[in-house]
Structure formats: C-alpha cells, structure tokens
Simulated scan of single mutants.
Amino acid sequence: MNSLLRIINRNNHNINNAIRYFITLPTTMKCIEIPKYGPPEVMTIGTRPLPVPKDNEVLLKVTATGINRPDCIQRAGMYPPPKGASDIPGLECSGEVVQLGKNVKDLKLGDKVISLLSGGGYAEYCTADAPLCLPVPKGLSMIEAAGICETYFTVYSNIFMRGKLGHNEKVLIHGGTSGIGTTAIQLCKSWGCEVFTTSDGKDKCKSCIDLGADHAIDYTDKNIKFEDYILEKTKNRGVDVILDIVCGEYVQRNIKSLNEDGRLIIIALLGGPKANVSFTKLMLKRLTITGSTIRVRDVAYKRTVADGLIQNIYPLLESGKVKPIIYKELNVKDVVEAHRMMEANEHVGKIILNIKF
C-alpha cells in the first residue's frame, strides 16, 4: 500500500510539474533578429512564435548565451545557418528545460543544462537536441556555463580528437585571448603540454601567460615572426600541433613551424580562405593539414564530442583546474555593443549575454 501511494504521489508530482510548465509557457517570445545583413546596428529586437520541440528535442528557457565569431559572420551575411536551423543567432546557451519532445527520456522538466546549438540562442526560448543538453558543471554559475559549449566542443574535437594531441607535446594556438584561445591554453596545459600562443599587443600576451601559456608572441611586433621564434625555442624542431583561426598567408608559416609528423588544424579563415603553399616541407616532414566546422555536423558526432567532454574535461571544470574565462556579461539588449566588442578584438575570453529583455 505504501509503495502504491509513493507511485501515485510521484506521478501526481510529475503531472503537476508538467501542468505548471504548460500553463506558464507563453505563445510568443522576444529574440534578436537580423532583418538585413550588415554591421552590428542591423540587429533588432523582434517577436516570434514560441518554438516547438521536435520528438528528440527539448525547449529551453534561455538564461544566457555566449557571443561567438560565427555570430558576427552570420550577421554580415557570410555564414548562413544550416538547413533547418533557426536564423536567430546564438550557438550555445545555458537554460532550463521547460518542454520535452515525445522521445526524450533522459531529461526532465526543470533540469538546468547547457547546450550546443545550431542557432537560436539570442532568444527567450530555444529548442535544443536532447543528446546535446549537458548538466551544468558543479561549481559554475549559469552565466559562466553559458560560455562552455561552443569553445570546449571546438577545442576538444579539433585539438584532441582530430589533432590527437599527446601529453607533453608542443602546441601553437593562434588568437590566444579569444574564447577558443583561452580555452585551448588551459586544456593543453592540463595535458602537460608546452603552449605557444600568438596575440595582439603586450597586454594580451601577458593575459595568455597568466592563463598558463609558456610563450606568447605579439603578432603586431614587426620584429618578431612566430615561426622564427618557435624554431629558436624548440631548437629547430617545431611544434606538434597548431590550431589556426587565420589561414591565408599563415598556412606556409605554420608549415615551417611544425615538427615532423605535425598536425595543422584550421578552424577559421580570418586571413582569407586561400593560400600559396609549397608542399615540399609537408612531404619531407610528413605533415597533416586538416580543418573542420562543428556547426554542420550531425547530432551523433556532436554527442561523441560531448561524451569526451564529460569523461575528460568535466572533472577539470568541476575541480577548478580549468574554467570558462568571462570577459564581460552584457544584457541581451546590448547585443550591438557586444558584437562591436567582439569585432574590435577587445575581449580576453568570452562575452556573455544574459537573456532579460
């Protein structure tokens, strides 16, 4: 009898909880829209119907979202969202589960999660693939947690999965004070690696060192070339892995900077998508050049990355050995300022929008 009463009470609690969310969900939401492509000022606050989760999705009430370079590129008209994805910008968020798709079994209403998104994060509500909703790491606020997914998924999948970075190897991270860079520095140091970085200006180079980098090269100093510096410090051997956000004329310089069997991973094209390259060094040193963008990958692949994060990176996050570096938290209404800040390269770490319209 007591067991039966417990079952009834538990089911009543779940039903009441579901009713509470169903009743309080609005039919519309506020969001940031890009009515036309252009500078940050083109973004406006709009109203959209509340999104409806598909069978394997959940609806999240968004707490905060991270600003990422692809958001700016999308706003400028050069990075359209994948087919079927929301045209609202925002590739990651923290939030609360408020509605479940009919096939979702491993999440429940009220769960606090973080999620990698294909779009939609700059809004009061967004849908997210249930397998990509991860628990908020213990000890982190929802604001801090909002800055995890895009950078940690990118760094882990590229440096550790594609680049196969080994313990005690040497790595070069271009753009050391970006969200990607601040994440990569910490994770590579946690692997016991010697970390080289590039950044713009002495102050930012100091920030890289403070985060744990062994070497920070000021790329605005015309008297220093990163490839020459690396070869000098490594006794002409070079580094084992390079994470590159520049491409363009950096490709040949990266090849010069790599050790035998080195791996060059290109994840952005800030210096342009084309390069003049001599492949002689590539052949002699048996180099690998690869690249990726995670936004267009399927859910199964992204879940594989998520499993690696939970197994290998969550213990570091929850112990405080690594953490998302938050440069500034802004209200979503200040999204124009946030994009200006991103494009001016003012930041060290992540710029976060709290979603309070």
Rank of each mutant, 00 (worst) to 15 (best):
I8M: 05
K235C: 08
P70V: 02
D210G: 12
T182H: 07
A145K: 09
K235T: 12
G320K: 01
C133H: 04
L172D: 07
G272L: 09
N2M: 04
K274Y: 05
G271R: 10
P81T: 00
K323Y: 07
P40R: 01
I159C: 14
R303W: 14
K83G: 08
I289A: 13
E41V: 14
S115M: 15
E329Q: 07
M341Y: 03
K225D: 11
I88G: 11
L59E: 03
H174V: 02
I242V: 11
E169H: 00
K138V: 06
Q252A: 08
G212H: 00
K170Y: 01
N56Y: 13
P273T: 00
D203T: 15
E337K: 10
L60M: 10
I352R: 03
D55M: 01
N103P: 00
L287Y: 12
N276L: 02
N331S: 00
V296K: 04
P51W: 11
I32T: 14
Q186H: 03
I351V: 08
K204G: 06
T44F: 02
E194L: 07
I355M: 05
G120R: 06
E343W: 04
S207H: 15
A146M: 08
G176E: 08
Q252Y: 11
I45K: 12
M78C: 09
L172K: 11
P49I: 09
R20S: 06
H347N: 15
E343Y: 05
Y79A: 11
H347Q: 15
D210W: 02
V348A: 02
G271P: 11
I159Y: 05
D240I: 09
V97W: 08
L211G: 14
Y229N: 10
G119L: 07
G181V: 08
L270K: 05
I266E: 04
I352V: 15
G84H: 06
A306I: 00
K333M: 00
V251C: 04
C126V: 15
I88D: 13
S157V: 12
E346C: 00
G271V: 02
D111F: 13
I114W: 10
L269V: 07
Q186R: 02
L116F: 15
M1D: 05
I352H: 10
N12Q: 13
L172S: 01
K235W: 01
V104I: 08
G147N: 04
V322W: 12
